[in-house]
Amino acid sequence: MHVERSEKMFFIASAALLVVFALAVGISGFVYGIQVPQPVGLVDPKTVATPGADGYHFGDPVEERIRELAPGRYEVYILAQMWKFSPGSIGYGEDPITVPVGSTVTFYLTSKDVQHGFKLQGTNISMMVLPGQVSKLTATFDEPGEYDFVCHEYCGAAHQTMYGRLIVEP
């Protein structure tokens, strides 16, 4: 088969790139020990909203989904569904999530229906929220103020109303 020389060069270059990137993954993993986050648990999206399902608390009453683990350590179970986060959806009349300043908060999220996103402004929390899978990230809030969170993965007609608020009290 005849291949144009310049084309061949590109073949080689792209193959070389593949190899280089594969090596980069290897080196970053072995030499620098870089790892990517992984889902923490699996749940059944059909039953996740019932109380106590699978040891998570997405089905508990909204006000009981924010709990103090230890002084200054909180966990929040946020259930995402079309088109709200619960708790925290101020657009739907829910109270914002409130924690004192200096708190470390672990967010557990899962979705009841479709794929959602969770981005908490002003922190490095940004994650995918998938049905059947629990996502978990932790942030520390050292500055008092209002932190909004939004769904940043398009999830249907009222996607733009899917937001909530976390208040860090001084």
Binding site: G33, Q35, P37, D142
Partner: peptide, 11 residues
């Protein structure tokens, strides 16, 4: 002991 997947230390 190297901490794999390092996490931010609690302030």
């Amino acid at each position: 002991m190297v901490i794999q997947a390092p996490q931010p230390a609690n302030n």
